[in-house]
Simulated scan of single mutants.
Amino acid sequence: MSDSLDARLRDEIDDQVAEAFDAYLSDRLTEPGPLRASLTVGRGARVVLGTVALGTLATALAPPGIAAVCWIWGAIAAVDIVWLRAARRR
């Protein structure tokens, strides 16, 4: 009986955490910022996700060594930051 009680209690806690997280995200999306600006433009999120996908592919194909991977992800970070700043100015 205590196992079923524990399971029900865990489910209830999970539901409460999910509701609180949804409320938090809703509040955060109403605040101004680069993420909000990129979502209103509509293209920003696709560009960022596209660069991450290409970075994953480039990392898989990169020669062994940490230097190449650092250059790949450094370039991706730079592109994404420039893109989000440009989207915020619009």
Rank of each mutant, 00 (worst) to 15 (best):
V41E: 10
I76Y: 01
V47T: 11
G44M: 03
D27S: 13
D15I: 05
L57W: 02
A18E: 15
F21Y: 12
V17P: 06
L84H: 10
L84G: 01
V79M: 04
A18T: 14
A68V: 11
D15T: 10
V79T: 05
I72S: 01
A18R: 15
A67K: 08
C70I: 13
R85V: 08
R85N: 08
A68R: 03
T51F: 09
L49D: 04
C70R: 15
L84C: 05
A20M: 11
V41R: 12
V17I: 15
E31C: 08
D22C: 10
V17L: 15
W71D: 11
E19I: 12
P34I: 08
D80W: 00
W73Y: 09
E31K: 14
V48Q: 01
I72C: 00
G65T: 08
Y24A: 15
G44Y: 01
L29V: 10
A62N: 03
A45G: 07
C70W: 14
V82L: 09
D22N: 14
D15N: 09
R46Q: 11
P64H: 08
T40M: 13
D27Q: 13
R85E: 02
S38L: 08
V52F: 13
V52C: 13
E31M: 15
A37E: 02
W73M: 00
A77E: 07
W71M: 10
V17Q: 11
A53E: 04
I72Q: 02
V48I: 10
P63A: 15
R36H: 08
L35G: 02
A86I: 06
A58G: 01
R43E: 12
D27H: 13
V69K: 08
P63C: 06
E19M: 12
D27C: 09
A60P: 05
A78V: 14
G42C: 08
R28T: 11
A20I: 06
T51Q: 11
L49P: 01
V41K: 10
W83K: 00
A58S: 08
P64C: 06
R36K: 09
A23I: 12
T59W: 05
G33K: 06
I72D: 01
W83G: 00
A75K: 05
V69D: 03
R43C: 10
P64S: 10
P64V: 12
S38K: 01
A87R: 02
L49F: 14
V17N: 04
D15K: 06
G65H: 05
D22V: 12
W83A: 12
S26M: 11
W73K: 01
P34R: 02
V82K: 03
L61H: 03
T40C: 10
A67Y: 04
A53C: 09
A68Q: 07
A67E: 13
G55Y: 02
E19F: 07
